[in-house]
């Protein structure tokens, strides 16, 4: 079966002093090839944990991840990752960062240079090839991170709040770029965010998670990502369903947060 399956996934962290945290409980999910899913939820609901298990950095306590028919046992080039800022290699310039994956595979220099040039053009950084990454702005650094991930041609791209540290304007531009790259490359993407707007705009599917234990609360299928590919994101926000869905999700998360606070007060 092609695509990515998350099967009966549970994750429990044992805390050194005794006790444990049920970070994820019985998650089941299937992503078809080329789907873009955004994941939303109050902080601490296990989003990062879920992504780290899919990436292969963590082994789940129960269940498994199946990708294109084989079990995931560790990180691999088929599942690329885009982190929040700070995961670029500052000892390499922009070109070397983007060419890192191909270089590790031993791709011939000439092919690699061509690929890097192309990707830098796609993300709009062609004039910054030889710059050091620390000379770039936060938005540009995330463009490099995207290009670096794409250079490796992964089947699935995992993003953990990739735009979380950017200012509002840069963020909007980057959201358009993500949509454009998604359509052009046809990659499967899982994108974690804590912005409801971002989840709505970018998520063809939108997963709302609930905390303690981390679980899937509700799933949406949304038209906005497809609309956004060819339109201004601000236009998309004027869509009739946009605001009502946004209100609904905001309420949902608001209530979860209230519940967490309530429980905290009870136990205190």
């Amino acid at each position: 079966m092609s695509g990515l399956s998350i099967e009966n996934l549970s994750m429990r962290f044992d805390i050194p002093g005794g006790g444990s945290v049920q970070a994820l409980q019985n998650i089941n999910l299937h992503l078809k090839e080329g789907e873009l899913m955004s994941v939303l939820g109050p902080s601490g609901c296990g989003k990062t944990t879920l992504l780290n298990i899919v990436a292969g950095f963590l082994a789940p306590t129960e269940g498994k991840i199946v990708m294109n028919g084989h079990d995931v046992v560790g990180p691999a080039a088929e599942r690329g990752m885009v982190f929040q800022q700070g995961a670029l290699f500052e000892w390499m310039n922009v070109r070397e960062n983007v060419g890192f994956g191909p270089r590790m595979k031993g791709m011939p220099k000439y092919d690699m240079a061509e690929k890097v040039d192309h990707l830098l053009e796609v993300v709009g950084l062609k004039d910054f090839k030889d710059k050091a990454v620390y000379e770039l702005s936060g938005g540009m650094q995330q463009r490099v991170a995207l290009a670096r991930c794409l250079a490796n041609d992964p089947d699935v791209i995992l993003m953990d709040e990739p735009l979380g540290a950017l200012d509002a304007l840069t963020r909007e531009k980057m959201q358009s770029l993500v949509l454009k790259l998604w359509k052009e490359t046809g990659k499967t993407i899982i994108l974690i965010t804590h912005s409801v707007e971002e989840a709505l705009l970018l998520g063809e599917r939108l997963l709302v998670m609930a905390p303690r234990p981390g679980r899937i609360h509700k799933e949406y299928r949304l038209p906005f990502a497809d609309l956004g590919v060819n339109a201004d994101l601000r236009e998309v926000k004027k869509h009739a369903d946009y605001n009502s869905t946004r209100e609904e999700i905001l309420n949902m998360i608001w209530n979860m947060e209230e519940e967490i606070m309530g429980r905290a007060e009870e136990s205190a």
């Binding site: 292969g56 080039a77 995961a87 590790m104």
Partner: peptide, 26 residues
């Protein structure tokens, strides 16, 4: 930073390559 090591592994680097291209320069 663990995210750098993770990034290198997801980009297909082997243990030796992570050492050579991430841990040592870092």
């Amino acid at each position: 930073k663990i995210s750098k090591v993770h990034a290198a592994y997801s980009l297909g680097a082997s243990k030796w390559q992570v050492m050579r291209y991430v841990i040592v320069p870092n």
